[in-house]
């Protein structure tokens, strides 16, 4: 793992103008360096601007002040080197599983000939174990399968960073566990740099090398950064009583429910 910042979020502010000279400061002075091959999760209560932060990395949202650099290049628009897995999978319902991935591959990898495109698409369908469903439409497969297609599509364009916005938030807990295992296995294989937005404490500890804890908005910022010193591959069963796992879990719970507890209005 290299130590130079791969993805550098440098003193970023996000300000929404409210009109009449008023403004809402959603994020204040966010500073974070993410290393290559690292899995980082960003956790916080709803309204802490974590999705906004992810969207700024994706280039889908503008940066009000500060700068985000990927390999020393400034981010100011969306691009395929920063693939996004959206919470609601956002597969195109009129295309089959295969076609959804093919569409992304054809656009981004215009150097491939038709045979190579097919091999490339199949490689990623294979990676998420969906060979049997490749000709199905999104409407015909389960939520977990859809999200796996979403991941395959994002990975198929071989991004430098994989951005995931609460990727498993809409799934039931069994399916979620299954997808978390998929994700860890895939990341071991591909070595992607991954940024995950989550509000699930166990998910954050299980998946991440580091957990970024956000304070509450307005003017949300990074409160604490937690290193998760657990070897990979990680096994959810054996982790249940692992001291480091419990320490990390405890630290996040402490942060979210004591230091920055959020009460219903």
């Amino acid at each position: 793992m290299s130590t130079k910042p791969f993805l550098n979020i440098d003193h970023v502010n996000k300000i929404f103008p409210l009109g009449k000279g008023k403004e809402y400061v959603a994020l204040r002075d966010v500073k974070l360096e993410i290393r290559e091959n690292e899995i980082v999760s960003i956790i916080g209560h709803s309204g802490c601007g974590k999705s906004t932060l992810l969207n700024m990395i994706a280039g889908l949202d503008t940066i009000s002040e500060g700068v985000i650099l990927l390999e020393d290049r400034e981010i100011n628009a969306p691009g395929p080197e920063r693939a996004v897995v959206f919470q609601n999978h956002s597969l195109l319902p009129w295309l089959t599983v295969y076609q959804n991935i093919e569409m992304a591959v054809k656009k981004v990898r215009d150097d491939l000939n038709p045979k190579e495109v097919k091999e490339h698409v199949m490689k990623y369908i294979d990676l998420v174990n969906l060979d049997h469903a490749k000709d199905k439409y999104p409407g015909e497969i389960s939520g977990g399968m859809k999200q796996r297609v979403g991941i395959a599509r994002a990975l198929s364009i071989e991004p430098k960073v994989l951005l995931m916005d609460e990727p498993f938030g809409a799934l039931d807990s069994l399916t979620r566990a299954n997808l978390q295992d998929h994700l860890m296995r895939i990341q071991m294989q591909t070595g992607n740099t991954v940024v995950i937005i989550t509000h699930d404490v166990d998910e954050a500890v299980l998946l991440s090398d580091r957990v970024i804890m956000m304070t509450n908005g307005p003017e949300a910022t990074i409160g604490e950064i937690l290193e998760v010193n657990l070897p990979r591959p990680r096994e959810r069963l054996t982790l249940q009583h692992n001291e480091e796992y419990l320490r990390c879990r405890g630290a996040i719970v402490e942060f979210l429910y004591s230091k920055f507890a959020k009460h219903d209005d």
């Binding site: 889908l60 628009a77 969306p78 691009g79 693939a83 959206f86 956002s90 992304a104 656009k107 364009i157």
Partner: peptide, 20 residues
Amino acid sequence: DYLNVAKVLQLTAFEKVFQI
């Protein structure tokens, strides 16, 4: 969401109209 997919893939205006 579909438009965001188009943005991430950097589809041209023409591709966006016909594919999305």
